[in-house]
Amino acid sequence: LETFPLDVLVNTAAEDLPRGVDPSRKENYLSDEDFKAVFGMTRSAFANLPLWKQQNLKKEKGLF
């Protein structure tokens, strides 16, 4: 999966995202380093959170 810089994904409308980016899964296009910096946890820890908590975190970080 291709990764993009944080500033390309945060608070970006679906139509302005790079081609192929799923707007409902912007976090998947962050590098592992950016993911950890944004969410303060690994991808696996994030995946283990309840869906509502994942969505709330994504909203807080501008990735929803």
Rank of each mutant, 00 (worst) to 15 (best):
L1S: 13
L1G: 11
L1I: 14
E2T: 13
E2G: 13
T3I: 12
T3A: 08
T3P: 06
F4K: 03
F4W: 13
F4Q: 04
P5W: 02
P5M: 04
L6C: 07
L6E: 02
L6Y: 13
D7H: 14
D7W: 14
D7N: 10
D7S: 14
D7Y: 07
V8F: 15
V8A: 11
V8G: 03
V8E: 07
L9E: 02
L9Y: 02
L9F: 02
L9A: 03
V10A: 09
N11F: 06
N11G: 10
N11W: 05
N11L: 07
N11H: 12
T12N: 08
A13K: 14
A13L: 12
A13Y: 06
A13I: 10
A13D: 11
A14K: 11
E15N: 10
E15G: 11
D16V: 06
D16Y: 07
D16W: 07
L17N: 04
P18L: 04
P18A: 04
P18W: 01
P18T: 04
P18K: 04
R19N: 14
R19C: 15
R19A: 15
R19F: 14
R19V: 15
G20L: 07
G20H: 11
V21A: 04
P23W: 01
P23G: 07
P23L: 08
P23V: 09
P23K: 07
S24M: 15
S24F: 12
S24E: 14
S24K: 11
S24W: 10
R25M: 10
R25H: 15
R25F: 12
R25E: 06
K26E: 02
K26L: 15
K26V: 15
K26G: 02
E27W: 01
E27M: 04
E27V: 03
N28Y: 11
N28S: 10
N28R: 09
Y29G: 03
Y29H: 12
Y29Q: 02
Y29N: 06
L30R: 01
L30Y: 01
L30M: 06
S31G: 06
S31T: 12
S31L: 03
D32W: 05
D32Q: 06
D32C: 07
E33T: 10
E33A: 11
E33Y: 10
D34I: 06
D34R: 01
F35T: 00
F35E: 00
F35N: 00
F35Y: 02
K36S: 14
K36G: 09
K36A: 15
A37Q: 13
A37N: 13
V38P: 00
F39H: 00
F39Q: 00
F39P: 00
F39N: 00
F39I: 04
G40Y: 04
G40F: 05
G40T: 04
M41E: 00
M41L: 07
T42W: 04
T42G: 10
T42M: 08
T42R: 04
R43G: 01
S44T: 13
S44H: 12
S44V: 13
A45M: 13
A45Y: 08
A45H: 11
A45I: 10
A45C: 10
A45S: 11
F46G: 00
A47T: 11
A47P: 00
A47C: 09
A47R: 11
N48P: 01
N48L: 13
L49Q: 05
P50S: 07
P50M: 01
P50V: 02
L51E: 10
L51K: 10
W52F: 10
W52R: 07
W52L: 08
K53G: 06
K53N: 11
K53V: 15
K53P: 00
Q54T: 01
Q54N: 00
Q54I: 03
Q54M: 04
Q55M: 13
Q55S: 10
Q55F: 09
Q55A: 11
Q55K: 10
Q55H: 11
N56R: 12
N56H: 13
N56C: 15
N56Q: 14
N56V: 14
L57R: 01
L57H: 04
L57A: 05
L57N: 01
L57D: 01
K58F: 05
K58T: 02
K58P: 00
K58W: 04
K59L: 15
K59Y: 09
E60D: 11
E60L: 11
K61T: 07
K61F: 07
K61Q: 08
K61G: 04
K61D: 00
K61L: 10
K61C: 08
G62A: 02
G62R: 04
G62V: 01
G62Y: 05
G62M: 04
L63K: 02
L63M: 08
F64L: 15
F64I: 14
F64R: 07
